[in-house]
Every structure is written in C-alpha cells, then in structure tokens.
Write a protein that binds this DNA or RNA. Structure first.
Lengths: 209, 209
DNA sequence: TTGACATGTCACCGATTGGTGACATTATGC
DNA sequence: GCATAATGTCACCAATCGGTGACATGTCAA
C-alpha cells in the first residue's frame, strides 16, 4: 500500500478528466470517479471536499476556454492591421477550431443545455470573462458599417458553430454536412467566410447607394 | 377506488408530458411518472410495456415536429410564387417560431446532445422523414445561384436557430441578445432575413461580374 | 348471483447513488 | 525507535432506481 497524497490527487483529477471526456456527465459522480481512479471515494472528500471543489480545481489547472491568442492562431501578429471583416472571420473560425479541440469543454457545454448548477456556472463565468477581455483586446479603431445590428447576426453564427461542434460525436451528419470528416468541417469554415463577407458587403453596398 | 383503464392511461400520458416539459430528462423515469400521475408504477408496465413504448405512444399522438404547413404559416397560399430567397427566409423563421412553441421537443433535443438512445432516436427519425417530405413539397423550379454550396451555410443557420432556442429558458442572454423578450427574438428574425438576403445577393452579384 | 377477468395496491428484490464513521497502515518529525 | 498525524481500507447508512410477484378489489357477462 503506497501512501502518496500528491499522486492520489493526480489520479483523481486525471480520472475525472478522462471520465468527462469519454462518457460525459451521464454516469458522472463520486463513485465512478473513485472507481476509475482506483481509489476509495472517501479520499475524494478528504482531498477536495466534494465534487464541486474537485471541479473548481480542474478548472483552475486547465485551459477550458480559448483566449484571444488561441482564437487568432497564426494571425496574431497581424491583428492591428486587420479589418473588422477579416477579424470576424478569423475569430469565428478560431472558435470552431479551438472548441473542437476541447472534448471536456464540449461535454460541459452539452451539460449546460440540460442542467444549470455550480459546475456549469463556473465555465459560464469563465466564458463571460474571456468574452469581455476579448472585446478589450481588439483594435479600438475597428469600423463596422453603420446600420449594422451585429449582435443577433453574430449570435446566430456563434450559436451555429457551437451547435455543430456539440452535435458532432453524437451524429454523423447535420443537414447534409458530414461532421466526422475534415472536409465537412472545411466546408463549414468556407460557409463562415462567405456569410461574413456577404454580410459586410450587404451593408457596405447599402451605404453607397 | 376507481377502476377506469382509459382514464389511468390518460393520467400516465399527461404526467409524462408535464414532467418532460417542466423538468426535462434529468429526473425522468418510471418512478417519477408514476409519482406525478398518482398511479402505481406497475400500471405503466401493464398498459404500455415500459418506458420506450410509453414514449412511442406519446410520439404518435402529438405533433412534436413542425411540418411544412406549420413552417409556412400565413405564407402557405403563396408558396408557388415565392423565390428561393423568400422561401428560405420563411422556412428558417418558421423553424424558429415553431420550435419555440414545443417545450417537450426542445427537451428531447437537449437530451439528444447528451445521450443517444431509443427515445431520442424516435424523434430523430421523425425529423428526418419530415425533412425529406419538405424537400419534395417545395416548388421544383426553385433556382439557386450557381456556385452556391448551400448545405453548410444552411446547416450553420439552422444549427444557430436550434442552439438559441434550446439555450433559452436556461440562460437570459446569448452574446448580447436577450432570449427572454420578444424583442430579442425579433432581432434574431431580422438577422435571419439579413443573412439570407446578403447570402443570395453575394452570389447573384458574383454571377453578373 | 356468481364466477372470471380487469384493474389497482403493496411489499419486496438487487443494484446504484452520495455520504460517513471506525479502523488499519504507513510516513515523518522528534 | 517511537509517538503522532497523514493516508488508505472497509463496512455500513438511507435513498433512489427499474422491475416483479402476490394479492385485494372492483366490473361485467353469463
């Protein structure tokens, strides 16, 4: 019998991540964590206090939500020179790409659809914070065509991206688009480009009329 | 002690609908149905066979998924005279409106994000069937600008609509859009119009260049 | 009226859940 | 080396779940 509290904490945290990524919240709980960690469940209470505290620990030590750098990727150096149109495209496609990389985040967001509780609230707060930071980090001189009510259009596209990512893994196809092949996803990325371009052109044209 | 099997069946079905609409699948099961119906759970097994059969019965007797008539609403008489652009707008907005009316459907779709099983498969099949019928019922002479890869763009918008509706009731606001007020939803409807218009104009302009 | 069947009630089963107390074992500081 | 605190093990609790068998009670046809 080995006694090493650090190692045990590690085992618990890893088991939690693994469980969330593979099975989601459906069979998630103290017992299943203890079982897959090969550890008595009483230790979870001793080391973390309970499930909520365990989750908080998890949130603190991993990056569940992409920050601006993640979203921009290779385009980061050119941020100041980009137009509103270009930034919109890059950030939306970044959102798609980065979310797909984070299975645990995906599972938490799926769970948010069903139940609101302290666990999901933690991620929601983090997301909100990052959202505000993102706005502040963007170039101040970005010019959007006047008359644009961007919020609902942006909300629609972001919601669409989110929904498609969350549905992937559960279904093969969504409305004729293959969610299991990279070619399907690049068709979606192209659609994002086209929609953003079309949207901006629409307002710019209106202005000059 | 009253003995009326029809009434008992009714009580069970109603309790099931009520439970799904109010609490979703989170605490859903034989026991909770029996409890809220005020009926012994053994009767559920006797009358329906089990939970799956109960759900099938529910699906058969209610319209969980909007058909073309629902989607078109007042625009139905003018279907043959409408352009692809107009039909796209009407159907997308119809989708938004009709889905919002169906809390049980919303809950099932939420559950589909988490777990795939016989219950959710039933709705998925129904949805697919209606989707095919919808394509057949549309005017045959609809002309889409060439070069358009509509599927992924349509998927994005439909996914966005779905996501926003499913998120409502759980959160107040999504990306700056109020999901609890009618004004928020009409901003979203406007955004659908604009995006569709912009998308079509984009390709039509390209063609004439 | 009586017998048979439909309907409803109740008690139980094994499995699983979150949670805790009591105890055994190991590591660590003195 | 020894006491003490940290760590790990085990057994148990009440509650809930889906599911079933045994039996009581009502209804209806012969």
């Amino acid at each position: 019998m080995e006694k090493d509290s650090k190692k045990t904490r590690e085992k618990i945290l890893n088991a939690t991540k693994k469980l969330l990524a593979e099975d989601g919240f459906i069979s998630f709980g103290i017992n299943s964590i203890a079982r897959t960690a090969g550890v008595d469940k009483v230790l979870i209470y001793r080391y973390f206090g309970g499930l909520n505290e365990l989750m908080n620990e998890l949130f603190r030590q991993s990056d569940f939500w992409p920050d601006l750098d993640d979203l921009l990727g290779d385009n980061k150096p050119f941020l100041q020179e980009m137009s509103a149109r270009e930034i919109s495209k890059v950030i939306l496609k970044g959102r798609l790409r980065e979310l797909r990389k984070r299975p645990v985040t995906m599972e938490i967001m799926r769970w948010e659809m069903i139940q609101k509780n302290e666990l999901t609230d933690e991620l929601a707060r983090e997301r909100e914070k990052q959202g505000r930071m993102l706005l502040e980090l963007l170039p101040k001189n970005l010019e959007f065509p006047e008359g644009m009510d961007i919020s609902p259009a942006a909300a629609l596209i972001v919601a669409g991206i989110t929904h498609l990512v969350l549905r992937s893994g559960k279904i093969r196809e969504f409305q004729g688009v293959d969610l299991e092949s990279e070619s399907g996803w690049s068709r979606i990325e192209s659609a994002i480009d086209v929609l953003v371009d079309a949207y901006f052109s629409y307002y710019e044209k209106k202005k000059t009329e």
